[in-house]
């Protein structure tokens, strides 16, 4: 397969661009139930490169208080997987960015794995991040279905992940690797320490085939710029949820925030 024929938008993006990629997470159905499309469109217009759409879950163990809270509010607003697919029905008529669904495995199991993947393909989802789906189960029971519907599964690595395991993850990934910046849940720590830089450099020295994006603790231009020195870009979640939470004009505030993070090129 030649590199230019790949149809997945994640692969296409990284073929064109390997630096300063900004991926932004938000929880679908938050702050208002029907903000989903508005937020995605605005993120595209303001210059985000990837959008991670959070599928709300009652028990998001890998997330800190900010994202737990947006999950809880989204569920209270009436968000569900079915409704999310309904909201995303025509998204591809206006949005060309790679779209990733990020959530937990249980709601996917209840929806039905095959049905979920098929819906993803139908609305134009490119990848999935399911932090509590382990590698072994993914390879045994899920990969085939994900592949069938053209979905890239994104794995996380942390400062505690061994080199052998990072290589194994790299081998079984075709998209990008989500490099968790520190031992933490989302939104827990801010800033980037020397210890983290050592870890980023250690991973860079492995010369992985997949690009890496750094997530957790990225909240503004300064942390984004630092992360970009050691990877292809970074992921912002909690800080963006805070922007939405305090906003009376989300389009304007999203625009302001994304431009402030990316800065003038």
């Amino acid at each position: 397969m030649s590199l230019t024929t790949t149809s997945n938008r994640i692969n296409q993006l990284f073929e064109q661009k390997r630096e300063r990629i900004l991926s932004v997470y938000f929880s679908a159905g938050f702050p208002e139930l029907n903000d989903t499309k508005t937020i995605i469109r605005q993120l595209q217009d303001s210059g985000a490169d990837i959008v991670e759409i959070g599928v709300p879950y009652s028990d998001p163990v890998a997330d800190g208080p900010t994202i737990q809270d947006s999950n809880t509010k989204a569920l209270k607003n009436g968000m569900s997987i079915s409704l999310l697919f309904e909201q995303l029905k025509d998204i591809r008529s206006e949005v060309t960015l790679p779209l990733i669904l990020m959530g937990y495995i249980n709601p996917v199991l209840q929806f039905g794995v095959e049905r979920f993947c098929s819906k993803c393909e139908e609305v134009g989802i490119d990848g999935l991040i399911l932090p509590d789906l382990p590698m072994a189960e993914y390879l045994d029971e899920y990969k085939e279905t994900f592949d069938k519907y053209g979905l890239k599964n994104v794995f996380l690595i942390t400062p505690q992940t061994t080199e052998a395991r990072i290589k194994m993850i790299d081998e079984n990934t075709d998209g990008f690797i989500y490099m968790v910046s520190s031992a933490s849940i989302t939104g827990a720590k801010s800033g980037i320490s020397q210890e983290q830089i050592d870890y980023f450099e250690r991973v860079r020295a492995l010369n992985l085939k997949n690009p890496t994006l750094i997530g957790f603790g990225i909240s503004n231009k300064e942390t984004f710029d630092r992360a970009c020195k050691y990877s292809s870009g970074a992921i912002i979640g909690s800080a963006f949820i805070n922007v939405l939470n305090n906003s009376s004009d989300i389009k304007k505030d999203i625009d302001g925030f994304i431009k402030s993070v990316k800065g003038k090129v």
Partner: peptide, 9 residues
Amino acid sequence: AYIPEMLYP
């Protein structure tokens, strides 16, 4: 063991 990678080690 359905755990996030952060708990794997």
